[in-house]
């Protein structure tokens, strides 16, 4: 499957025209991570947005104090994004994310490419930012339902 076909089924790009999805697909890089390999590390500077297109990743947050064990927040599967917080607010990664299936297949967009595309085409910027807000809202609702 090519990146455009994958992006068409990702909520982050809902509302974009096919040629706009093409523009984003061209900026994507494909990566595969084996089970338990760390993809992002909590506290590090984040420069990339990730899209899961096959397999699962596990989102883990370290405790507030050293004696508190790391806690798994959620598993993310096909069609889900992560790394969006650092992309929007430029803060450090809020969690560690590692592969949670034999292989986790991801698409990756670097912030500099993402910013350049959004600056050039404000419709892409508006739609993607609205969808990032909707995705964060969905994750918050999931968090409330799990009580974690």
């Amino acid at each position: 499957m090519n990146p455009k076909d994958i992006l068409t089924g990702v909520e982050l790009f809902e509302g974009l025209q096919p040629e706009e999805i093409n523009t984003l697909a061209e900026a994507c890089e494909e990566r595969v991570y084996p089970l338990n390999e760390i993809i992002t590390q909590q506290g590090e500077v984040g420069e990339e947005l990730f899209i899961v297109y096959d397999g699962f990743v596990e989102v883990v947050r370290a405790g507030a104090s050293p004696e508190n064990a790391p806690r798994t927040i959620v598993h993310l599967g096909e069609g889900q994004i992560f790394g969006e917080m650092a992309l929007v607010d430029r803060g450090p990664r809020s969690a560690t994310v590692k592969a949670a299936s034999d292989e986790a297949h991801l698409l990756v967009i670097k912030r500099e490419n993402f910013d350049r595309i959004c600056e050039k085409n404000h419709h892409i910027g508006y739609v993607v930012m609205r969808n990032i807000a909707a995705d964060l809202s969905f994750k918050l609702r999931h968090h409330h339902l799990t009580g974690r």
Binding site: G9, E11, F56, H75, G77, G79, Q80, K139, T146
Partner: peptide
């Protein structure tokens, strides 16, 4: 485009973080 179902799965009765994923 066909419908996509974005699902928040919550595991009842055990300590599990659940998952979010799309299904067709």
């Amino acid at each position: 485009m066909a419908a996509t179902f974005k699902v928040s799965y919550v595991v009842a009765g055990e300590e599990h973080p659940g998952a979010i994923l799309n299904t067709e």
